[in-house]
């Protein structure tokens, strides 16, 4: 189990010498990823979701709060323990084009870490070759086709599968998928999402799924938790379908309203909201972080920042002074279901 409590991270000034200004990337985030569980994190670009994923993989430091892996605080681990534990949490990058070394074949990429494992566990060289083929097959690739090839000879979808197979060489306990399908054709996304789904079911991997595509989050972790991040703060969290169907925070509602409606097959939800105006994170408001963009903002929203509180249904939390459940996501057309 991986758990973060009160995690905060601030990036020091961006914008040159004069505009020296701290940018909070995470604000007191609490999150639990149970073994075999799934947590999806959604939010727009720059909301801190990538930073959160990188901290969980040990690739980024944090300012305050704690990160617990199997109950052990990361900052108190020895270097060896740290390395050992974070190795079990593998990151799947967004960009399959830069996540593979362009000068190394798939075979070299896969064998590098497998050899390390083989020598640590006294296994033969033949085992590494076998294992590499096995893992590629697991992610739906033909080993004889892929192994001798360089990354640029493979399609984006195939590369992302290689990236997943490479992560599996160290027998990880958790995967952090950071926008893992954003750069892949829509028609091929489901294949990748299906692998993540199967890895959870078959190997019991836990999954932190970072995305802006809520439907994809639903596909890989329908039984899991959904966290909505806005400017580094968790503004709403709960079971995936509860949040999708009965969101109470206006920001979540805007995110869900932005999902395209497949006209003909679906109709827009009755309370669908118009898109928010662009984020301006230059100002740090004293009150609710969303107040300047919120369609439902009232005067008191400018004064105090709402804490994350229970919202009725079990496990559903929100941080809003004036929450109201709205039905914003598309509804399947009943007419279409008469076929077949």
């Amino acid at each position: 189990m991986i758990e973060v409590r009160g995690l905060s991270k601030t990036f020091a000034g961006r914008g040159g010498l004069l505009g020296h200004r701290a940018v909070p990337a995470l604000r007191e985030v609490d999150l639990r990823l149970a073994s075999g569980g799934a947590v999806s994190v959604i939010g727009e670009s720059g909301c801190g979701k990538t930073t959160l994923g990188r901290i969980l993989c040990g690739l980024e430091s944090y300012d305050s709060g704690s990160l617990l892996i199997e109950g052990r605080e990361a900052k108190q681990m020895s270097l060896a323990e740290r390395r050992e534990r974070f190795q079990r949490i593998q990151l799947i990058h967004q960009d399959p084009y830069s996540a593979l070394n362009p000068t190394r074949t798939v075979r070299q990429t896969m064998l590098a870490s497998l050899r390390l494992r083989a020598s640590a566990t006294n296994r033969s060289k033949a085992w590494t070759e076998r294992r590499a083929a096995e893992l590629l097959e697991l992610v739906g690739l033909d080993p004889s086709y892929c192994l001798p090839r360089y990354p640029h000879m493979l399609s984006g979808g195939m590369r992302q599968r290689v990236v997943i197979a490479r992560a599996l060489t160290v027998d990880p306990e958790a995967l952090v998928a950071d926008e893992a399908v954003a750069m892949i054709d829509v028609s091929l996304r489901l294949g990748i999402l299906g692998i993540l789904r199967r890895l959870r079911a078959d190997l019991g991997l836990s999954l932190l799924f970072i995305t802006h595509d809520v439907a994809a989050a639903r596909y890989v972790g329908e039984d899991g938790q959904l966290y909505v991040l806005y400017r580094g703060q968790v503004v709403e969290q709960g079971p995936v379908d509860e949040i999708v169907q009965r969101p109470t925070h206006p920001y979540t509602q805007c995110l869900l309203s932005a999902i395209p409606v497949m006209r003909g097959l679906e109709r827009p939800g009755p309370d669908r909201l118009v898109p928010l105006r662009p984020l301006d994170d230059n100002v740090e408001p004293p009150g609710c972080l969303l107040a300047d963009r919120c369609p439902q903002a009232q005067d008191d929203c400018l004064l105090g920042r709402p804490p994350l509180l229970p919202a009725g249904a079990a496990g559903h939390l929100h941080a809003c002074l004036h929450p109201e459940a709205r039905s914003v996501v598309a509804i399947p057309e009943q007419t279409a279901s008469s076929g077949r």
């Binding site: 993989c57 190795q87 593998q90 990058h93 996540a99 590098a112 870490s113 390390l116 990236v163 160290v170």
Partner: peptide
């Protein structure tokens, strides 16, 4: 800082 080197570190390669 490129992802493939980050991945190499993450895999524990020497």
């Amino acid at each position: 800082e490129r992802p493939f080197l980050e991945a190499a570190r993450g895999l524990g390669l020497p």
